[in-house]
Design a protein around this nucleic acid. Structure first.
Lengths: 152, 152
DNA sequence: CTCGTTGCAAATCATTTGCAATGGA
DNA sequence: TCCATTGCAAATGATTTGCAACGAG
């Protein structure tokens, strides 16, 4: 797909423009990552790139992914968490998650939200829907004001 | 709040009924956990309970939380993940996440989903909304059929 | 030539597991 | 009494960090 190559070139350009260096390892990671339909872990990306660069370190993969996320061409699937968090409230509601300090606040689920039943219907019979979570990710007031880390 | 004590008693009853033992440590964890409005980590719960049981182990907290999740009185905030997963698709879409094998599939975001702009409006000026994620958690067809672990 | 990047190993967290001792039912 | 549960320490897995060597600009 020439489409993908163009995208890779675009990202490489962006790297250069923003003052970052274009190394063969980075290009290999970008090439393996963009245009995919799946959601790989750092480990999975590393395993793919190892075929081309047997010496590449997992820490290089982590730093490159971080770069891609900062550039806006990649996203973390569930950003804002370090470790598991547990919720005593099992009713249907949304979370407002601060990607800086990890604080989580509740927002009652509005009626405009799809129900688990509606999703089950949309998805068909293959997948058994158990829960629906709408998370709003961003930066809370305290972090935006430069506040130091303070948990939920 | 007598409300909470009643809830604690209810859970304790459920424990007994399902053949689990009611230990002082478990009661303390349940008491610290239920009725809260926040979303503590295992570490946070442990720190609270240590005041009452200085010898309690973090592994006990983990196993008790797992029990509460199985009983349906607690929920993991972002269930189904082990480690970070990254998404090359930064457009607005939903994820179907299998809580068994961790596989993630994409579903295009329907028009019935609230937009980031609408959420920002609802939340007011304190929080800077960056991204909205709707995740559908459940069990995929392969896992429901007893299939072994296979990634995305 | 310079300084951002890499590779590596060790450090740091989060979570799980194995096992002997304990104490609810 | 008996076995689920506890505490502890060690194992595991994910991610970060410190630092010397390297190499893109």
């Amino acid at each position: 797909m020439a489409e993908r190559e163009a995208f890779v070139d675009q990202i490489v350009q962006d790297l250069r423009v923003s003052g970052h260096r274009v190394t063969p390892q980075r290009v290999a990671i970008i090439r393996e990552f963009v245009g995919r339909a799946d959601h790989p872990s750092a480990e999975a990306i590393h395993q793919r790139v190892v075929a081309e660069f047997p010496m590449i370190a997992i820490s290089t993969v982590y730093s490159t992914i971080r770069l891609l996320v900062e550039m806006g061409v990649a996203a973390e699937v569930s950003p804002g968490f370090t470790g598991a968090r547990f919720d005593p409230n099992t009713s249907n509601h949304c979370h407002v998650v601060c990607t800086h300090c990890g604080s989580i606040a509740d927002v009652p689920a509005g009626p405009e939200l799809p129900t688990a039943e509606a999703c089950a219907e949309t998805l068909g019979s293959g997948f058994r829907v158990e829960r629906l979570t709408l998370d709003i990710h961003g930066v809370c007031a305290r972090c935006a004001a430069g506040g130091s880390d303070a948990p939920d």
